[in-house]
């Protein structure tokens, strides 16, 4: 997928680019308003990551510009402002999602993937991974012709892993993804373990290879062996 990252903080930009590059993704970036509007006008992107506080202009104006250009690029707003007004204004102007800083890169990737899937597959929303076919809209999983039955949390977890394949995903990020970051969870994320264990067992039983491994006790990695 082709992604434009509009972010003025170089360190953050670099991390995002590093995380997204690879696996056939093309990442471009813009760190001020002028450059961003130029790129938006000339190229088409699957998804644009938009930081609202930009030098040279208000990020929300870029959304208006996209609308005027009648482009169908997906837009994910990244903002340091945890403000309901900004969120509503952004979504009203045609943004697809809104993520507040600080965030986990894995969460960002999962959300971008979701936006791109929605934009590109027009209802036929299926993720293919080796012998696995995951129909996100119908919540169905097929492994070598076997139908796998998962709980809602296990399914969400699998989609999250698939969006972040070959990346180490922390338990913290997984917990926040599944339960929301408002939940004020304790720092003990061991209850994630049960879900991961069940998911892995069900996939193995259906005949999939063992793609999940635990990493340093911090998190998990789902990907090619």
């Amino acid at each position: 997928m082709k992604i434009l990252v509009i972010e003025d903080e170089p360190a953050l930009l670099e991390s995002i680019l590093a995380y997204f590059t690879g696996e056939g993704n093309i990442c471009e970036h813009a760190s001020d308003f002028a450059l961003a509007s130029e790129k938006i006008a000339v190229y088409n992107y699957d998804c644009i990551l938009l930081d609202l506080g930009l030098p040279g202009g208000e990020g929300l104006e870029l959304l208006t510009k996209l609308k005027q250009l009648k482009k169908r690029d997906g837009v994910l707003i990244i903002s340091a402002r945890h403000s309901l007004d900004d969120k509503l204004a952004g979504l009203d102007l045609g943004a697809d999602d809104y993520l507040v800083k600080p965030f986990h890169l894995s969460e960002l990737k999962a959300r971008v993937s979701a936006i791109v899937r929605r934009k590109n597959f027009d209802g036929d929303n299926v993720i293919h991974f080796n012998e696995m076919a995951v129909d996100v809209s119908a919540m169905k999983i097929n492994v070598k012709g076997n139908h796998v039955i998962l709980t809602k949390k296990e399914f969400d977890l699998l989609v999250y892993f698939l969006s972040n394949r070959n990346k180490v995903v922390t338990k913290n990020a997984m917990a926040e993804h599944l339960w929301g970051d408002e939940m004020d969870l304790s720092d003990d994320f061991d209850f994630i373990y049960t879900h991961v264990k069940n998911l892995r067992k069900k996939l193995l039983e259906a005949g999939s290879a063992d793609y999940l491994r635990s990493v340093y006790g911090i998190g998990y990695k789902f990907g090619d062996i």
Binding site: E9, A11, L12, S15, I16, A18, Y19, A80, V100, K101, P102, F103, H104, L105, S106, K167, V168, T170, A173, V215, Y216, G217, I218, G219
Partner: peptide, 29 residues
């Protein structure tokens, strides 16, 4: 929020570089 976001993203990036010992993993956590 911005430096926090940077720390978080750098940690995520650091985690991807593999080859940590168990001890380093605990520190990261």
């Amino acid at each position: 929020m911005t430096p926090l976001a940077v720390i978080n993203s750098k940690l995520d990036s650091l985690l991807q570089t593999e080859s940590f010992t168990e001890q380093q993993g605990a520190l990261l956590e």
